[in-house]
Amino acid sequence: KYLVLALYDYQEKSPREVTMKKGDILTLLNSTNKDWWKVEVNGRQGFVPAAYVKYL
Rank of each mutant, 00 (worst) to 15 (best):
K1N: 13
K1V: 12
K1R: 13
K1Y: 13
K1Q: 13
Y2K: 13
Y2W: 13
Y2L: 14
Y2R: 14
Y2G: 15
Y2Q: 14
Y2E: 14
Y2N: 13
L3A: 07
L3R: 11
L3G: 04
L3D: 05
L3Y: 15
V4E: 00
V4H: 04
V4C: 10
V4I: 09
V4M: 08
V4S: 04
V4G: 11
L5F: 10
L5C: 09
L5K: 09
L5T: 10
L5V: 15
A6C: 09
A6H: 02
A6M: 02
A6L: 03
A6K: 02
A6S: 06
A6V: 10
L7M: 15
L7C: 07
Y8N: 10
Y8F: 14
Y8D: 09
Y8T: 11
Y8M: 12
Y8P: 01
Y8C: 11
Y8I: 11
D9Y: 04
D9P: 06
D9Q: 03
D9E: 05
D9M: 03
Y10D: 00
Y10W: 11
Y10F: 08
Y10C: 02
Q11F: 14
Q11L: 13
E12Q: 12
E12T: 08
E12A: 15
E12C: 09
E12F: 06
E12K: 13
K13Y: 04
K13E: 11
K13S: 13
K13A: 12
K13W: 03
K13I: 07
S14I: 05
S14H: 14
S14N: 13
P15D: 14
P15N: 11
P15A: 12
P15C: 09
P15M: 08
R16H: 15
R16M: 13
R16E: 15
R16K: 14
R16C: 11
E17T: 09
E17V: 05
E17S: 06
E17Y: 05
E17A: 06
E17R: 04
E17C: 06
E17F: 06
V18C: 08
V18N: 04
V18A: 06
V18L: 15
V18M: 11
V18Q: 03
T19H: 05
T19I: 03
T19F: 04
T19C: 06
T19E: 04
M20K: 00
M20C: 06
M20R: 00
M20I: 15
K21Q: 10
K21R: 14
K21G: 05
K21V: 10
K22G: 07
K22W: 03
K22V: 08
K22Q: 12
K22P: 04
K22S: 08
G23E: 02
G23Q: 03
G23S: 04
G23N: 07
G23V: 01
D24I: 03
D24L: 04
D24N: 06
D24H: 05
D24M: 11
I25A: 04
I25H: 06
I25M: 08
I25F: 06
I25Y: 07
I25V: 13
I25E: 04
I25W: 05
L26A: 10
L26R: 00
L26D: 00
L26G: 09
L26C: 10
T27D: 05
T27H: 11
T27Q: 11
T27P: 12
T27Y: 12
T27S: 09
T27A: 11
L28Q: 01
L28E: 00
L28N: 00
L28R: 01
L28H: 02
L29A: 04
L29N: 02
L29Y: 05
N30H: 08
N30Q: 14
N30R: 06
N30M: 08
S31R: 11
S31F: 11
S31D: 15
S31P: 08
S31N: 13
T32G: 12
T32N: 14
T32S: 15
T32D: 14
T32Q: 12
T32C: 11
T32Y: 11
N33T: 07
N33P: 05
N33S: 11
N33C: 08
N33A: 09
N33G: 10
N33R: 10
N33V: 05
N33F: 07
N33D: 15
N33W: 07
N33I: 05
K34E: 11
K34V: 11
K34C: 08
K34G: 10
K34R: 11
K34A: 13
K34S: 13
K34M: 10
D35K: 15
D35I: 15
D35T: 13
D35N: 13
D35H: 15
D35W: 13
D35Q: 12
D35Y: 15
D35V: 15
W36Y: 09
W36D: 01
W36R: 03
W37L: 07
W37Q: 01
W37C: 06
W37R: 02
W37A: 05
W37E: 01
K38V: 14
K38E: 14
K38Q: 13
K38D: 04
K38M: 15
K38L: 15
K38N: 07
K38G: 06
K38W: 15
V39C: 06
V39D: 00
V39A: 01
V39T: 01
E40V: 08
E40F: 06
E40N: 06
E40Y: 07
E40M: 09
E40R: 08
V41T: 11
V41C: 09
V41E: 03
V41S: 13
V41L: 15
N42G: 13
N42Q: 09
N42E: 11
N42R: 10
N42C: 08
N42D: 14
N42T: 07
G43Y: 05
G43V: 03
G43Q: 07
G43K: 06
G43F: 06
G43P: 01
R44Y: 06
R44A: 08
R44I: 09
R44G: 04
R44H: 08
R44K: 13
R44C: 05
R44T: 07
R44Q: 09
R44S: 07
Q45H: 09
Q45G: 08
Q45E: 14
G46N: 01
G46Y: 02
G46D: 01
G46K: 02
G46A: 03
G46C: 02
G46P: 00
G46T: 02
G46E: 01
G46H: 02
F47T: 03
F47V: 07
F47R: 03
F47I: 07
F47L: 08
F47S: 04
F47P: 00
F47W: 13
F47E: 05
V48P: 00
V48N: 00
V48S: 00
V48Q: 00
V48K: 00
V48A: 03
V48Y: 00
P49K: 03
P49T: 01
P49Q: 02
P49R: 03
P49G: 01
P49L: 04
P49F: 02
P49C: 03
P49N: 02
P49M: 03
A50G: 05
A50S: 14
A50Q: 06
A50V: 06
A50K: 08
A50N: 03
A50E: 03
A50Y: 03
A50F: 02
A51T: 13
A51F: 09
A51Y: 10
A51H: 15
A51L: 12
A51N: 13
A51W: 07
A51R: 14
A51S: 14
A51P: 09
Y52H: 07
Y52G: 07
Y52K: 08
Y52R: 06
Y52T: 08
Y52L: 13
Y52S: 14
V53A: 03
V53N: 00
V53S: 00
V53Q: 00
V53W: 01
V53M: 05
V53D: 00
V53I: 09
V53L: 15
V53T: 04
V53E: 00
K54Q: 14
K54L: 13
K54V: 15
K54W: 08
K54S: 12
K54A: 15
K54R: 12
Y55Q: 15
Y55G: 09
Y55F: 15
Y55S: 12
Y55A: 12
L56P: 06
L56I: 13
L56C: 10
L56K: 06
L56H: 12
L56E: 07
L56W: 12
L56G: 05
L56D: 07
L56Q: 07
L56T: 09
